[in-house]
Design a protein around this nucleic acid. Structure first.
Lengths: 215, 215
DNA sequence: CAAAGTTAATCAAACGATTGATTAATTGTT
DNA sequence: AACAATTAATCAATCGTTTGATTAACTTTG
């Protein structure tokens, strides 16, 4: 009864994001969302127009603070491409693991056939991410820092894929790693450093190869 | 009118698998499935009892021919662990890209909160896959073939993750790679060899490191 | 200041449409 | 005739959405 001052619209978005992540867009009913949020059903349409409008609002809230985060990394001057890769991986993992539910929602939306503005927006946002990382990699190849035969697109797919495997298949990940990968404490103390450490060793081994892996 | 002799039950499963992959389980209606399959709606319940029964039937059809494929690889004697990894990756990619729709269905099911026998079966099947691959990796570590600090679970997550990124996010993958990654011809001629080639370089670089990456 | 007017927020109830499932009748096969 | 396969019609339930009324807070007016 203390902290209830946070915006109700924002509260609904928080709850809806969680419900959509758990049950999927089609599997989550507006009744469940409004019930969990403790608001009347009509409020969803009052605030967001429709169920899809609610999803769009969730999406736009996350993307509004997104653009500035990525853009800065690639522009630094006095750093090697490998250092940029490290920084990018850091920033990416931070953002991904801190927006656990949102990441699930995005990935679920990408997996189903949808038409409309939202589908385009999702793709556009992801591609922005892709291009930024790929630019760093291409730069590294040009500078001779990374191997000429580096498959940059697949490297991107690797980073994104590992993320989606850990975030979007939490049951499997939890069994594999031996602890609940949804628990925020485990994420910060165990999962994040481990993935970070692994990814850097993996990418280092692949990218910074001593140029003798031709043929 | 010639090849209509294939079992009608099997035909329904084919169509349903495709529809579930496209629209998700909750997003696909029984009317759409029966319509696309050209059968009466009641036939779904007649054959499979319920919508979930239909999903279970899809699942069981694929898993029935699955077990024998994997089991053989790990048991070979006169091969190095790295060769086993190569063979496993080959077999895995083959199976994954040839059951495109089914892979999407599985992954979507893992992403949503479900209870019941199916959820357990899905996890069980995937874990079987995980354990088999992990066993090969552990064996390689024991033989000194792979580095002692190899993070086997993350290697598994890498393989599975890249797959899910390419299969479950086909729009993104298609834009990234520059061609339709859903087209069977592209899959066989372009995607499969490329992923295969990349994965082997990547894993080789990480696993077969010259043991000087300690610290 | 007080009364009237205006607005946004909230609610219970109901809407038409669609969902998965079932029924009872009909057709096909052996 | 007996059984399996197939159909159209219908079921209750749930879906997302809309409605009309009510409340509370602020603005305007006299």
């Amino acid at each position: 009864m203390e902290k209830e001052k946070i915006d109700k619209r924002d509260h609904i978005l928080d709850v809806a994001e969680r419900i959509f992540a758990e049950y999927g867009f089609d599997g989550a009913s507006t009744r469940l969302i409004s019930g969990e949020a403790g608001v009347n059903m009509a409020m969803l349409n009052y605030y967001f127009g429709s169920k899809e409008g609610l999803l769009i609002a969730i999406f736009e809230r996350r993307t509004s603070t997104f653009h500035s985060l990525i853009r800065d990394i690639g522009k630094k001057e006095n750093t090697t491409s490998w250092q940029k890769v490290e920084e990018y991986v850091n920033a990416y993992l931070d953002r991904v693991f801190n927006n656990n539910c949102f990441q699930k929602v995005i990935h679920q939306e990408m997996a189903v056939k949808r038409t409309g503005e939202l589908a385009d927006k999702v793709i556009q946002m992801i591609m922005q991410n892709v291009l930024e990382f790929r630019k760093i990699l291409h730069e590294g190849i040009e500078k001779g820092e990374f191997g000429k035969d580096t498959d940059t697109d697949m490297v991107v797919a690797t980073l994104f894929g590992i993320k989606s495997q850990l975030v979007n298949a939490p049951q499997i990940a939890s069994i594999m790693l031996g602890y609940d990968t949804q628990d925020p404490q485990n994420i910060d103390e165990k999962l994040k450093p481990r993935v970070n450490n692994y990814l850097k060793k993996l990418l280092k081994a692949y990218l910074l190869v001593e140029n003798d892996n031709e043929h």
